[in-house]
Design a protein around this nucleic acid. Structure first.
Lengths: 149, 149
DNA sequence: CCCGTTTGGTTTCAAGTGCAACCAAATGAG
DNA sequence: CTCATTTGGTTGCACTTGAAACCAAACGGG
């Protein structure tokens, strides 16, 4: 059994979990201040729909790292707000494909600046090159751990 | 208003949030398989107690990025399992200082290997040097966003 | 075909979370 | 000293979540 003389808070696991939480909280608060009419938990789903329009609910669950039940509920909200639509797949009556409405596509231009600003504040004073490396590493970690994709 | 031609999923915000979630899920599952008797949400609190024994609840809330109400409830569980103790501060009757029991300190040696293993799987195939940079960047982001510390 | 199995999605239930209201102790200006 | 304010912690509430049970459609070997 390996010894652990270092500070456990320095572990990549806990650092990532905590920074993720800080960023999520930050975003939620900004969205609330902007008076967004849909609840914060829909954000993650939206992000994927912006680039994967027409995706199945199941695949949304995998890429957003949520339970498929959570996707069901998020889509209920997004449909109610006319942001996304569930369209039954003609080839398989079980599956529904999710499409953004015009409003849903436009939201990208309201919300991405918030994300950009959150990043900007978070990486203040950190060399741009290192931030780029961090991003690349996180992307590969995401792929490593989400092989189901 | 800036344009956003790139994939929003590549934004540092969403990458970090998602990798954090993947890691958290992974840990929770491993803990459950190991038959840990305390619920997963106590992990974050434990991590800080390992290096900041005697800390106040309020400060725990800040460093673990949880509500102080959540800390109250996590400590109820940890006390019930004889992992931590609430000791009233002699100088200020309002505050309680949290101390680990022997069992609580020992848990580090059961749980840190799980965290190590999670990291190992996540960073497979990524140059060690880049992982180190990523860690350093995340640490600075943590400090940038949690100035209350 | 036919029926057991798998897959996509919804519903239900038991946590866990943050916010707000609250209580008790400490602080501090007048 | 006194009372309004602040601070540390707990409790109640509304909301989100994942797990499991469930239903309907598709698949697939016999």
């Amino acid at each position: 059994m390996e010894d652990h003389p270092f500070d456990p808070r320095e572990s990549l696991v806990f650092l990532t979990i905590r920074v993720g939480k800080l960023l999520a909280n930050h975003l939620h608060k900004q969205e609330r201040m902007e008076g967004q009419e849909f609840p914060p938990h829909c954000m993650g789903v939206l992000v994927d729909l912006w680039t994967r329009d027409g995706i199945r609910q199941q695949d949304l669950a995998v890429s957003t790292i949520k339970d498929k039940a959570s996707i069901t509920r998020a889509l209920d909200v997004l449909e109610k707000h006319n942001i996304a639509l569930r369209i039954p797949d003609p080839n398989d009556k079980r599956t529904k494909r999710i499409y953004l409405t015009h409003k849903g596509r436009q939201l990208k231009y309201d919300l991405m600046p918030l994300a950009d600003q959150a990043v900007a504040e978070a990486v203040q004073g950190i060399p741009e090159k290192e931030v780029a490396t961090c991003k690349r590493v996180l992307h590969r970690m995401y792929e490593n751990m989400n092989k189901k994709l």
